[in-house]
Amino acid sequence: MALPPARVSMPAEARQGEILEIKALIRHPMETGYRVDSRGQPIPRHIVRRFSVAYDGEEVFRMDLTQGVAANPFIAFSTVATRTGELVFTWEDDRGEVVTVRKSLTVTG
């Protein structure tokens, strides 16, 4: 029952043509790779590389992240409600780990 370390907030219902504001947070160290530990050894880079959102199978938002982004990235974007379907939020990091959150959206009118 482990929850993904991510939090997505968006309305569950919307009217056709309505603009939705969607906010996504994930817990991630976003280690830059430029720092050294207490013994002077470099700390390997560990960052989220890509965040993408598919709405009913179609990509509606994508963002490439870099070392310049702080830990626990917060991303807000908007999209237009077109049809009832599932939004799939995917974060991929440079160790190949993938976190996925699914939210369903009901479109009326």
Binding site: P5, R7, L25, R27, N72, F74
Partner: peptide, 16 residues
Amino acid sequence: DEAANPGMLWVDEGAR
């Protein structure tokens, strides 16, 4: 804003 406050990620873990 609970949707934007990064501390809520830990609150979620506490709830679990």
